[in-house]
Write a protein that binds this DNA or RNA. Structure first.
Lengths: 170, 170
DNA sequence: AAAAGTAACTAGTTCACCTAGCTATTCTTT
DNA sequence: AAAGAATAGCTAGGTGAACTAGTTACTTTT
C-alpha cells in the first residue's frame, strides 16, 4: 500500500495519456523514491534488531538525545505524549531501557511527582557509533549540490509530501 | 533515530567547516526529506487505522493487488515469505482478512496441499478509493518535471539511499 | 483545609506475532 | 509401486508490547 507500485504508476500514466518517455521518467523517479523508503525501513530494522529494541524504544532514545543536546529536561509524561502511548506503557518502556542501561530515572528538582529521564553515556555512544557515518554521508550527499539543484529537490519533496498529506483516511 | 535531526545535521556541518549558506541548504534538504518521511508514516497510520488493519495486513493487500494485476497466483506461503513471518502467523493474518471480507481462500488448481489467496472487489475498491488520488498526485508531481530535473532528483535519491544502506548494524 | 488535578506506577487484558508439532498431499528414490 | 522425505497449511500454546482501569503520592485551586 501506501506507495504507487510500478504497475499502478503505469496504469495512472496510461490513463493520463502522457508520452512514453515522460511516463518512464516519472516511473523511474517514483521507483527511486520507493527504493529509498525501503532502504530506510530496512536500515531502521537492522539498527533496532542489533540493539534489541522496539521502534518506540529507538524513537524515544533519539528524542531524548536531541532534547539533551538542547539542555531540555524530559519527563516520562513528555515521552508518552511524543510517542502517542499511554503513561502506563511509558512506564514499561522506561523500565526496559533502564534495565538495558540506556536511560536513568532521576528525581525532578521541583515537583516530587515527576521524574526526569536521561540517556546514559552507553546509549549516546551506541547511537553515534551506528548512525554518525550515515549522517555524514547524508550531509555530504546534499552539501555538494549546487543551489539550483537544491531548489529542484526541495520542490520535488514538497510536491510528493503534498500528495501523501492529501490522503485523509476518513 | 535513523534520521539526522536539525541539531545533528548542524553539528556534522560544523565539524566539516562548510560555508554557512551551503550548510543551511543541506539542512533544508535533509529537513524536507525528514518531513516527507514523517508525512508518509502519518498517512500510512491514518490509512491503517481507518481500515482497522495492521501494517502487515496492508502490505499484504498491496502485494496481492499488484500480483493480481499481473495475473500471478499467490499462496499463503508466498505471502509469508514476502512479509517475513511464519506460515502460522500467515494463517492468522489470512483468517483476519477473510473475516473482514478483504480476501478469499480458493483451492489451488493442481496441488491440493496449497491454497490461492485472492482479494475481493471490496478490498480493491477500498484501496483504490483511498490511494488513487495520492497516486495521481505523485505521478503528476514528477511527470511535470523536465528531464534534467528528473536526473537531479534521481542522483539525490541514489546518494541518500547509499547513505542509509551503509549502516550495517552488525 | 478540602477538593480537584496531575504524575507515575501496578494489575490484568488484548492482540499480533512466535515455535512446535500435526495432517494431508506431493515428490523422490529405490 | 511402495516407502521415505519434503512441502503446505493448520492448531495449540507461549511471548511481549501495547492497552484500560485503578492506586498512590504529590501539587494546585478554591
Amino acid at each position: 500500500m501506501v506507495f504507487p507500485t510500478e504497475t499502478e504508476a503505469d496504469r495512472i500514466a496510461g490513463d493520463a495519456g502522457d508520452s512514453r518517455e515522460k511516463r518512464e521518467r516519472a516511473i523511474a523517479v517514483l521507483d527511486a523514491l520507493r527504493l529509498y523508503r525501503a532502504a530506510e525501513s530496512a536500515m531502521r530494522r537492522r539498527t533496532r534488531e542489533s540493539m534489541s529494541m522496539t521502534e518506540n524504544d529507538l524513537l524515544l532514545l533519539r528524542y531524548l538525545l536531541r532534547a539533551q543536546s538542547q539542555e531540555r529536561p524530559v519527563t516520562p509524561g513528555d515521552l508518552a505524549r511524543y510517542l502517542g502511548v499511554s503513561t502506563a506503557s511509558m512506564t514499561a518502556i522506561v523500565d526496559r531501557l533502564e534495565a538495558s542501561g540506556h536511560v536513568r530515572r532521576e528525581p525532578h528538582p521541583s515537583d516530587r511527582r515527576r521524574l526526569l529521564v536521561h540517556t546514559t553515556e552507553h546509549a549516546d555512544a551506541q547511537v553515534r557509533a551506528t548512525l554518525h557515518q550515515m549522517h555524514e554521508r547524508m550531509f555530504a550527499a546534499v552539501a555538494d549540490m549546487p543551489p539550483e539543484n537544491t531548489e529542484i529537490v526541495l520542490r520535488f519533496l514538497a510536491r510528493v509530501q503534498d500528495a501523501v498529506d492529501a490522503v485523509d483516511a476518513e
